[in-house]
């Protein structure tokens, strides 16, 4: 998509992808926004990272709850939704195989290998879920452990890729990886819980875990904001932009209210008794909230000025 067609898209899309206008003469003289992975066609990368990681989160949580549909949904979301959007983002998707040929080059290439392993091992783990009577089972304990580790790596993939960018202190913040892991697990768990609810399973234990995930998510989120705020001048600037600057509205409404406050309220409402409808509502909020959290983190990444 060229910027021209991009500009013709809907108002919402435009607002969402609008960049803060820094005059050309302030480029790298004032903290300068990361654009390539969020502006214009860069939004595909945001979506690709999100879906592949949430997919892995669903898969991961499904491993614990033995929820077979979750394997399939997680696997498909990671590879089909995440993968396709990823391909859409690349400038030369035809050359993507080159990445697999160079696993040692970079975090990105290593991540691609993790995806490949996830795809293959996941495929064989899913097969018994689809076709009974196969001569082996995907629910072997060791297999689960291996897949669990791969899922965690996959959940971290996007943020790990971002985390190695030393030039963007808000991404290379130490709290970003823990936040990303819990985010994948928390959002994944909500999908699984909802699907299990639909399937009529007893959710009492699951809901207890959900509360734990949510609590950790909230803590890590606050730790990330607090830690990054006190990390360096540019990181400080990034967080200021997030909580006070151009993205503050999106941050408070999208991340704080939608992603945290409403889920908290719903969790409290369901303290004694789970309700599939409310779980669905919470899922929607969590989903949107986390998507926007990642969006604002992409947007509020600033480079340190050169002079």
């Amino acid at each position: 998509m060229t910027a021209a067609t991009h500009n013709n898209s809907s108002g919402f899309w435009r607002r969402l992808t609008r960049k803060k206008q820094l005059p050309e003469y302030e480029w790298m003289i004032k903290p300068t926004q990361q654009e390539e992975w969020i502006e214009g066609p860069g939004v595909y990368l945001w979506l690709a990272f999100f879906f592949s990681e949430i997919g892995a989160g669903i898969y991961f949580v499904s491993l614990f709850s033995n929820f077979r549909a979750g394997f399939i949904i997680g696997w498909l979301m990671t590879l089909v939704l995440g993968g396709l959007i990823h391909m859409r983002y690349l400038g030369n998707p035809g050359r993507v195989l080159r990445i697999f040929a160079k696993p040692g080059t970079s975090e990105l290439a290593r991540g691609m290998w993790v995806i490949l392993i996830f795809a293959v091992l996941g495929f064989f783990q899913i097969l018994p879920a689809l076709f009974s009577g196969l001569p082996w089972t995907g629910f072997n304990f060791m297999y689960k452990i291996i897949m669990g580790i791969i899922c965690l790596l996959l959940i971290m993939h996007g943020f790990a890729t971002m985390n190695v960018v030393r030039a963007l202190p808000s991404w290379s913040s130490t709290m970003i990886l823990p936040l990303s892991i819990i985010s994948g697990i928390w959002v994944g768990s909500q999908f699984v819980e909802f699907f299990m609810g639909l399937a009529g399973a007893n959710l009492a234990v699951f809901e207890m875990w959900s509360r734990v995930f949510f609590f950790v998510y909230l803590c890590f989120f606050l730790l990330y904001i607090w830690g990054t705020y006190h990390q360096s001048d540019t990181a400080h600037f990034s967080m200021q932009e997030l909580v006070k600057g151009d993205y503050a509205q999106l941050f408070y409404v999208g991340v704080v209210v939608i992603g945290l406050a409403v889920p908290l309220l719903l969790t409290l409402i369901m303290w004694g008794q789970t309700n599939t409808f409310l779980i669905f509502v919470r899922l929607v909020f969590v989903f949107v909230g986390d998507l926007l959290l990642r969006y604002t983190l992409m947007k509020s990444a600033y480079y340190t000025p050169l002079i």
Binding site: E36, W37, G91, R95, V165, A167, T304, L306
Partner: peptide
């Protein structure tokens, strides 16, 4: 000829 267009380099360059 080898560039896949992922822009990881672009994002990574602290000098932009």
């Amino acid at each position: 000829d080898k560039c896949v267009g992922c822009r990881a380099c672009l994002v990574a360059c602290p000098y932009q």
